[in-house]
Design a protein around this nucleic acid. Sequence first.
DNA 1: ATTTGCATTATTGTTGACAATCGCCGGGCG
DNA 2: CGCCCGGCGATTGTCAACAATAATGCAAAT
Lengths: 235, 235
Amino acid sequence: MATLHDTQDNAPSRRKMLPAQSVADWLREGIRRGRFVPGQRLVEADITQATGASRSKVREALQRLESEGLVLIEEFKGASVRRVNLEELRQIYRARIALEGISARDFAMRASPEQRARLAELMDELDSAVADGAPDRFNGLNAEWHKLIIEGAGNELVAGILGRLNIPIQRMLFESLYNIERLKAANSGHHAVTAAILAGDGEAAEAALRQHIDDGSATIAVILSEIGEQSPNAV
Amino acid sequence: MATLHDTQDNAPSRRKMLPAQSVADWLREGIRRGRFVPGQRLVEADITQATGASRSKVREALQRLESEGLVLIEEFKGASVRRVNLEELRQIYRARIALEGISARDFAMRASPEQRARLAELMDELDSAVADGAPDRFNGLNAEWHKLIIEGAGNELVAGILGRLNIPIQRMLFESLYNIERLKAANSGHHAVTAAILAGDGEAAEAALRQHIDDGSATIAVILSEIGEQSPNAV
DNA sequence: ATTTGCATTATTGTTGACAATCGCCGGGCG
DNA sequence: CGCCCGGCGATTGTCAACAATAATGCAAAT
């Protein structure tokens, strides 16, 4: 079984003494970046040693992550990164469609000229990334593009919910865009949404973004089912 | 300052010894039913005594409620029921529009004949409650009507999010329907949604439910602003 | 060789005591 | 009379030891 300090790699982790809430952030980030894979156990002692936080803080962080749906805590068995099955993935995407859709609508109605200009700029850079066949650059720009719309919609509550929803599927999202065909498809969706927003058409923007997310969901489902077919404790 | 066991009222609270997670439920319920009003402090010792749970469990429950956005925890000041301002109310309603809207759409597409029959039945009872001018009965039926759609949409994730979103405004929702005019207006919205669902028209069902919720939001905003004008520590 | 039972160990859950901080109350002073 | 300030009680934050439980490894028996 892989322990935690096995993988202490790049970070200058010399007794960080992370104070409190940061432990939750640290774990979230680790889950998002794939350092902790679904099913992996999160042993309190290891986290204590890795972060320098006290056990109380570690426990508090784990309980928080559980109520966010990121980890599973079983009595006397401890915490582990929660696995998502296909049904849950579907539900996540349904929620994303609803929330990110309405964000696009709101963004189209209230975005400042600067924000619209930034959106157009990102669109150009996305195009150039596609033209260059640069999936890494595309991934970063893609995240920024979505983030601009979500945070620009002026609804921190919805932005927060979406942020939490995305964590479990972040890694798959990332992997899904290493195929040039999918990349082109995704970008055509971006174009439709961007055009509607720049035209100030909230209705169309919402519809286009819904379509865009729905397209992506099929791709992710494939990836998840591939992963799910591996041995249960492998991932 | 009102303490907790001042208000220990109806429940047979003879040393309940609530085990663990139940403490969070107990607090949630108390907040929802107005036993704990926004701004009220939630002292650990009082909760311990009232529930019979240990302090660890109480703290755990409070932290959970904080990450749900229900309570506010300040360093060395403890937990208190979070106040919602008008901007946050707007954001809650925007999220509700998105999530309950898509639930109506999904329900229209996948509800069983039994569920549709139940919806029609509820609609009749709502009408009769309006005709009788019975706001209490209407309130109960109204909650059931929304619940049927949300839980019948087949998305527990979205249902859970909506459940948490509604808690802070539950009391206002309740109070808002003691005006016969508003009651009639709300019911006309119910009719539009029900008709669309029974016709199997997901698109129209979503649009109608969005409109219905949006109508309600204005009413709630009025109530909140009235409350907000009272002295800050009164509520 | 496989399985069963047992003892050991690793890990989590719980409790209690102690330290830190905030809010209040009363006294001193301008 | 009003204001500042220092102590005091109440409340929360932190930590370490202890108890309860599950996982593991080993040996013996079939």
